[in-house]
């Protein structure tokens, strides 16, 4: 590990000031960053510990929730209001990593975690445009079982690894940012950039901006929501495909629907096309398959991950059938 100095941020403003400095990186639980430093993927000159920033979860005036950036994943998943009003979020967090890692990891760190692509994580022997821009991509012709089928580019097909963020995009979460020029709010759905020609640029954050909080809007339909994750072992593995859904049915037709996917794209994938196609109709296998065909029309699967097209369709059917109580 390259030598570095260690600092502690005492306030959000202090963290933003330090984050703007060359070579400075923010440290939450360290579950991803410390590992990347040990592997030689990341080489910060200074780590700024931000775990003393807000860990509060408070109800907003409009009836949503404001979640401090340093809140630990376990604390968010276990919060009574999250469990009752946004169960999809609890379930998604609990589907990720292990209990030890969830105890350590922060909410902002989860959002800003980096790719688990084997080639990104192997600086000694692999080419990766995200780690070393212009060097090439070994995943495209290599082991791409865990990679994106939609939203990728010739330069990068890395899939976003977070479970929590799949639920957050389904819930229309907002990211509160603070920089030297002030504060702003960005929907999580618009927070990540698709890789294009610059896979090393992963978010819309400006240099020196930090995440201070995540805001959930009031969303009654979220009380009926769920998260299902399909993976290579029953627990403690990244998603092949995951589905976050909130649904409401009246007189046999979907009146409200939020649908998002993990494991298939470089960012948590909100399925707006599928939502539009399904709203106002019944939950049947045929309807969900047709909606998913529309959603994944632009998919460009590869040798190792083409199975995800069918897996995503079928997992969507299963989750929506469970949520709405129909046999699709």
């Amino acid at each position: 590990m390259t030598p570095f100095t260690f600092a502690r941020a005492t306030s959000p403003e202090d963290a933003a000031r330090l984050a703007a400095l060359e070579g400075h990186r923010l440290l939450g639980g360290g579950t991803n960053l410390v590992d990347l430093m040990r592997k030689g993927v990341e080489h910060p000159t200074t780590l700024v510990d931000v775990t003393a920033l807000s860990t509060e979860i408070i109800e907003t005036a409009r009836g949503g929730l404001l979640i401090g950036a340093a809140t630990r994943n376990t604390a968010l998943a276990a919060h009574p209001l999250v469990r009752t009003r946004y169960p999809v979020l609890s379930r998604a967090i609990l589907a990720g990593a292990s209990a030890q890692i969830r105890n350590m990891a922060t909410v902002a760190g989860n959002i800003l975690q980096r790719s688990r692509c084997a080639y990104f994580n192997d600086p000694a022997a692999s080419r990766c445009n995200k780690r070393a821009p212009g060097s090439g991509c070994d995943a495209r012709e290599g082991f791409n079982r865990y990679h994106a089928i939609i939203g990728g580019s010739p330069a990068c097909i890395s899939a976003h690894p977070s479970d929590m963020c799949v639920a957050l995009v389904a819930l229309d979460a907002q990211v509160h940012l603070l920089g030297m020029t002030g504060a702003r709010t960005v929907p999580l759905a618009e927070f990540y950039r698709l890789p294009g020609d610059t896979p090393q640029i992963e978010t819309v954050m400006a240099p020196g901006e930090i995440i201070t909080a995540i805001e959930l809007p009031p969303l009654p339909v979220a009380a009926r929501s769920d998260y299902r994750k399909v993976r290579d072992r029953a627990s403690y593995a990244f998603a092949l495909v995951s589905v976050a859904a909130c649904a409401s049915v009246q007189d046999g037709v979907l009146t409200e629907l939020r649908l998002a996917f993990g494991g298939i794209a470089p960012k948590p994938w909100r399925a707006l096309h599928a939502e539009q196609a399904l709203l106002g109709g019944p939950v049947t296998r045929e309807a969900v398959f047709a909606a998913m065909d529309l959603e994944l029309a632009e998919a460009a699967p590869l040798a190792g991950n083409a199975f995800k097209l069918e897996l995503a369709r079928r997992t969507a059917v299963a989750v929506l059938a469970d949520l709405t109580g129909v046999t699709a």
Binding site: F6, L27, G29, G30, T31, V34, D35, R38, K39, L47, D49, T51, S98, A99, Q100, I101, N103, M104
Partner: peptide
């Protein structure tokens, strides 16, 4: 594994289980 994948390094930090391999001592 020294990379957060196996749990062999689990200890209790203020009573909560964490991975000591991914925790910096200074933290």
């Amino acid at each position: 594994c020294n990379q957060g994948a196996c749990g062999a390094c689990t200890v209790l930090l203020d009573g909560e289980r964490v991975l000591s391999c991914l925790t910096l001592a200074v933290q």
